[in-house]
Structure formats: C-alpha cells, structure tokens
Amino acid sequence: MTGASVLDAPRRPDADRGFGRSGAGSPFVRLLARRLLMAIPLLLAVSVLVFLLLELMPGDPARNQAGMDASEEQVEAVRRRMGLDKSPVERYFGWLFGIFRGDLGRSSVSGQSVVDMLGDRAPVTLELVTLAFAVSLLIAIPVALMAARRPGGIFDRTVMVVSMTMLAVPNYVLAMLLVLVFAIMLRMLPAIGFVPLEEGLLPNLRSVLLPVLALAVPLAAFYTRFLRGDLVEQMNAADYIDTARAKGVGPWLVLWLHAFRNSSFGLLTIVGLNIGTLVGGTVIIEQIFAMPGMGMMMLEGAMSRDVAVVQMCVFVFAAVAILANLFVDLMYAVLDPRIRYGSH
C-alpha cells in the first residue's frame, strides 16, 4: 500500500494534499476532470466483477427457467434462447461491444430490450430515491439543529427516543405498519402500485408517499442522530465556538454558521455513502409496494443470471453512486477552505 518512507518522514504542513497546487488551473476543474476520467475504468472494473459474480453463482438458470418437468431438449432450447451456450468470455465481450455499438442488449428472459425496460422502471426508482433522500434530509437537519440547541432538553430527549425507535425498526416492518395504518385502517393511501406522473401529480405522490416514508424515516433517524451528536460534540469541543459566543454571537447563529458547517462534513460523508446503497436497496420496498422499479428488475435478473439486465442496472447504480461521491468530495472542498487550498 504505502512505502514506509511516506509515513515516517516528518510531515510538512503545507504538503500537497492532492487537491491541486496553487497555480495551474482551478482546483475544481482539475478534480472534476480527474475523477470523471477515473470513473471509466472504475465502471469497467465493476462490470467485470458483476459478470464474474454472476458466473460463480451455482445452479443452472436455463433449467430454472424451464422448470421441473421440462425435457432435456426443452432445457437446451431455453439455454440457447438465453444465450447461455456461448463461453463466458464470448458473452462478456459480446455484451461490452454491444454497448459501444449502442445496443444495450435484451433481457435473456423476456426478450425485451433493456433500454425499454429501463425506460419503464428507472423513473420509478429514481423518484423513490430522490424523494426519500430529500425527505430524510428535510426531516433530519432541522430536527437535529433544534435538538442540539438544547442538548438534554425535552425536545432533544424526545428526538433521541423517537429516532432510536425508527432506527431499530427494519424498513419492511415499518412499511407493513404504514400500510396497516394508512391503507387498511384509514384507507387514505394505496397499499400497492405506482401511478406515473402522466396520470396526475397528486395521484402519483399519493402512490409513492408510503414507500418514500418507509425508506426515508430510518435514514432520517440515522442522519438526525449522527448530526445531532456531531453538533453537540462540536459545540463542546471547538475553540472557535467559544470565541464566537464570547463575542456575543447568539446560539442559533453559532449553531448554523459554525457547528453545522463543520458537521456537514460528516453528514455529507454518510449521505454520500447512503445514496449508493439506497439506490440498490429499494428492492424490498419495491417488492412490498409492487413498485415496478429497477430494484426488482435487478433482483429478478440476478436470480435468473440475465446478464444484460443486471449489468445495466449495476451500471446505473454505480454511476449514480460515483457521481454522488464526487459531489460529496466537491462539497468538502467548498465547505472547508483549508482543504480547498491546502493551507490554513
């Protein structure tokens, strides 16, 4: 990993931090360019990894497909149809070159073009994830700020208890409870199904509200706790906060301008982490609410070794995660000038 020399040498405070030297070119642009360039081999590496994993999975998807009472002949026919009679190398490169030609492939199960499938399903997952992300932050940030204002106070304690509860509940149990209360008992919201935007904004929002809540609430709980903890720690430990207070700056301002700014690092980090897993982790929620999204598409594809489908889903998820993390890193630089310019 690292040579001994790098670690043992006494550190110079203004050593290059890898974020750009003063001088040639804006540090942002260089960072952006470099990271985007690195994204390509990264995505390729991910695609190879996916392919290998799919190959390693035991079982015969052709036989799976064909079912119990299929004859050998029928299984072979299914195998041919799924393209599984070709060698793994052939299949991978066949897929890869197809991508360059612009042919994203077809599902080996249904024969549908992957582009069409994505077109149907990506908006669903995208909407779920975006709304969940937004809602979770919309809840977490204000609540954490208010709680950190008076650590140990009633509001803080309530927040702690409630967020703890929400964290401990698996999101599918929460989903079922939400359905129980809002769909069955109160009949206010639908239990399943996705209403596309074309059919109206309100019906669409009604159909995604429960799944979004099921996704967002545990996240919000996590962010709230983390942020609140970090804020309180900030306020206890940091010199500049005491300085600010000594200067007579009000507590809210202290919180917002200083403590939050620093805590946002940590928050950004975990949010960035979560975007990647959030996108792939909507499967269970999509299942429960019968949302025709990419999570289900990927799961079914993985189970039947539908290479084209899984690769495309993984590609999209990976791209989203990479972009999200890139954004996080950029935000680091924005938020802390010390990192941006490598000096203090």
Binding site: L42, L56, T277, G280, V283, A302, C313
Partner: peptide, 14 residues
C-alpha cells in the same frame, strides 16, 4: 469507491 459503488444487493446474493 468500487465497493461503495457496487450495489450491495448483487454482491450479497452472490
């Protein structure tokens, strides 16, 4: 990044 970018689901199933 590769691990973070990789959808956990596929890895787990595999």
């Amino acid at each position: 990044d590769v691990f973070i970018a990789f959808p956990s689901l596929v890895l787990t199933i595999a």
